[in-house]
Structures are given as structure tokens and as C-alpha cells.
Design a protein around this nucleic acid. Structure first.
Lengths: 147, 147
DNA sequence: ATAATTAAGGATAAATTTGTCCTTAATTAT
DNA sequence: ATAATTAAGGACAAATTTATCCTTAATTAT
């Protein structure tokens, strides 16, 4: 569904939401290990999320690392997709048709739009914080290693 | 959602379902033009669909081209995804976690699985033929050019 | 039989995505 | 002030996806 870069972005952001506080800010090495992603590549992605788009915040130096502002925690998960430039996946025609619309529907349109609507709703409704919370409560794990 | 190759595969197969008959078999040039895809690349994809996996059939020589057997027309759309090796998209965890499951759900799991179920159902239930029919009845267009 | 037509298949190239490495800049602790 | 730590950023490399081109094989029409 999403690119690896976006998958890493989602996992990293959720991890940061869980682990960061005023006292403790996970660094890129810790994050990459925790979510089982390539470290340098993840660093690039964190740069993206930190820079233009204000999803993630960071501080350099000893005890530095990444964290989320209270404002950022309330952002919908979709904002991560937007920051990664992969937001269109939620809107696009399944067949990849540029002119597919209500007026000129592709053969999948009518059925697919209902599903797409739910996808959009899910990514709009869920906040970054609420995902982190679900992690804490459920047995959910973010790392990707198979033991 | 899907790769370009798979989008072309879906469009091409639907087009063939519409246009082919005993008398008339669209060739790769016609198909590529109709669905607005790069010709040589589309030819490769048609080879894939023709070869191992028996989605599409073909005949060479003058008046040759591509067509679908009656059996193939009844195949679920999902079989095209399988032939393209992109079937896993329907099953995969949104966050890309290999060990995400009912037992070890990721933070998105519970909500996403409902949507995924509908996606799978859609691709399982719809047959190639039924899509072609919807095209004929509705105003749906397969080409991708913006006029 | 021959020529024309069309898909099959191989080799290769271009573009994009994924990934690494090294240097620089900022911040902190001493 | 100095050294240590950590993110930022640039340059580059590998892998994958997308795409083109050319030759070969099959089939048909003449």
C-alpha cells in the first residue's frame, strides 16, 4: 500500500510518540533499532518529518533526539502521509486513471470509493497520539524482526 | 496502491475482455493506445499475463492479438494481482510489520483489517467479465489522457 | 513458397526508490 | 574553552521499477 519510506515514517513517528518525554528523547539509532529499519535511511526520513513539515521535532547534542510537541501528537495519521508525499494513495483511482471520477467512473469506481472513504476516515480520525496509546494498551509491537 | 505494471495489467485485461471476440483480437499497439500505457512495457506485461498464468491468451500473425477464454473471463480480478505478484498488498500490514497478526496486532491492525477484508472481498467477488460489463453499461473509460 | 503481420523474448537503458557513508553544525557536559 | 554527543546534510551506491529497442518465432494471406 505504502512505500517503505512511508512505512518507516509511520512506525518511527508512533515510536517517538510513545517514548519521548521532557526527560527522554530517543535518538535515531534507538528508533531505527526499535522499528527494525535501516538506520541511515531512517535518519533521512526523520529529517523530512522534522524539516518542512512539523510532524517531528528534534534537538542535537548529548541527550538530544526526537520528540513530538503536544500539538503534533494531536495531528491525524494522515499528516504523516502528507509529509511523505504519499497522501494521494488514499484518493487515487485503483486502476490509475487520472480522469476517473463520479462523472466518468472506471469499472471499479463505485465499489472502490466506499472502501477508499473508510480508509480516508481512518487516517483522518486517528491521531498520532491515539495510535501510541493503543500500542501501550494492546500487545502491539512496532519492531519487525521475526524471532 | 498498486504498481504501474499492475495498473496497466488491470486496464489491459479489462480492455481485452471488452474488445476481443472470435472475429476480433486487439493487438498490443491497440491495447496500449486504448489504455494509455507505454507500448513496449505493456507488451512485457501481456507476456506475463499470457505465459505462466493463464489470464490472457494470444495468437501471433496477421489478425492475431490477445483475447480471453470463457474460463478466464470468470476469474476474479484478484487473479490478475496474483499473476503480477502483487497480491500481498491486500493482506499486508499497513505499517509493513511482518509479525502483525490477531495475536500481535500493530496499532492500526484492528481498524485496518475491516477495510482490508472489504478490499479482498471486492477483488475476490468481481470477475474480469463483470468489470468489462460495467464498462459497457456505465460511462466508464479506460484511457488515461486528459483532454 | 513468399511476404507480411504480429506476439515472444533478450538485452539494455532510464528513472526512481532504497540505502550507506562521511563531514558539518549544534548542543551539552566537563 | 574543550571534548563528546547527536542530528543535519551532501554525495554517492545499490536495488528495483519502468521503459525502449531489436531480433526471433509463429501465423496468415497471397
Amino acid at each position: 500500500m505504502f512505500s517503505k519510506a512511508t512505512e518507516y515514517a509511520l512506525r518511527a513517528t508512533i515510536y517517538i510518540a510513545q517514548k519521548s518525554s521532557d526527560k527522554n528523547k530517543p535518538g535515531m539509532a534507538e528508533i531505527a533499532k526499535a522499528i527494525d529499519s535501516p538506520q541511515s535511511f531512517t535518519a533521512k526520513i526523520l529529517q523530512l518529518l522534522t524539516k518542512n513539515n512539523k510532524i517531528v521535532s528534534s534537538v542535537r547534542g548529548p541527550n538530544g533526539g526526537f520528540f513530538l510537541t503536544d500539538k503534533a501528537k494531536k495531528l491525524p495519521v494522515r499528516s504523516i502521509l502528507e509529509a511523505m508525499g504519499e497522501d494521494e494513495v488514499l484518493e487515487k483511482c485503483v486502476l490509475g486513471l487520472k480522469q476517473c471520477s463520479e462523472a466518468k467512473p472506471c469499472p471499479m469506481h463505485t465499489n472502490y470509493k466506499l472502501i477508499k472513504g473508510q480508509l480516508i476516515d481512518l487516517f483522518e480520525t486517528k491521531s498520532i497520539q491515539s495510535l501510541a496509546d493503543e500500542f501501550e494498551n494492546g500487545g502491539a509491537k512496532l519492531n519487525n524482526r521475526i524471532k
